[in-house]
């Protein structure tokens, strides 16, 4: 499963372009485990290049509200990405965040009427709904185009990396301390396997509130 958030199928020319890159691009196969060695899903991994990353236009991402949940729970975007919050529920929502990376509030809305929010600073953004205290979601903003999110098996892949030096990082919403960072050097056509470790809090951070 591709870690890119865009669900829509790419236009043909994009596909061709990607294919031309792929011929000389590296990729990293990553598994994320917790301190007990268990593989964990929804861990965000990203590769921060030592060199400047090429500027490419951002595609809009979206975090749906469905069945009074944020879906997906964890979304990774590159800085400068606009994120829409389409409401698939029959009731309105008022999505907000007090996180330092992006405090915002979308007044009560329904459907897709809400304007997209631009996430221009890296970091963790905790999403909540002001009228549904149970709703909890995360947007993690990274300052690199190369990022991925682990699947249920705790594995993911970052592809199309140009050769060079990177710092490989991990974040999990339940982490008890900043995740492991690892420096890697990629050759152009190499596929690297990396294992990253993150310590999780013993208990869910929102225990007991309901």
């Amino acid at each position: 499963m591709k870690s890119h958030s865009n669900r829509r199928a790419p236009p043909l020319f994009v596909a061709a372009m990607l294919a031309s890159f792929a011929a000389r691009a590296a990729s990293v196969e990553i598994t994320v485990t917790d301190s007990h060695g268990a593989r964990i899903a929804d861990a965000v991994v990203w590769a921060m290049p030592k060199a400047a990353a090429p500027q490419r236009p951002r595609r809009e991402a979206s975090v749906e509200q469905r069945d009074q949940r944020f879906s997906p729970l964890v979304t990774v975007v590159q800085t400068g990405t606009k994120v829409r919050f389409p409401n698939r529920d029959p009731v309105r929502h008022q999505v907000y965040s007090f996180s330092a990376a992006k405090p915002f509030e979308i007044k009560l809305y329904a459907g897709t009427s809400a304007p997209p929010i631009l996430f221009d600073r890296p970091g963790e953004v905790v999403l909540g709904c002001n009228i549904h205290d149970d709703m909890l979601g995360y947007i993690y903003v990274v300052d690199t185009p190369w990022f991925a999110k682990t699947a249920a098996d705790g594995a993911t892949r970052i592809a199309d990396l140009p050769g060079g030096d990177y710092e490989l990082k991990v974040w999990h919403y339940a982490q008890s301390m900043p995740g492991e960072a690892r420096a890697i050097r990629l050759r152009a056509d190499e596929t690297l396997a990396a294992a990253l470790n993150v310590s999780l809090k013993a208990q869910p951070s929102r225990a007991g509130t309901r």
Partner: peptide
């Protein structure tokens, strides 16, 4: 009590 947003802030 914690101030939740929705995690304790």
């Amino acid at each position: 009590v914690p101030v939740l947003a929705p995690l304790p802030i």
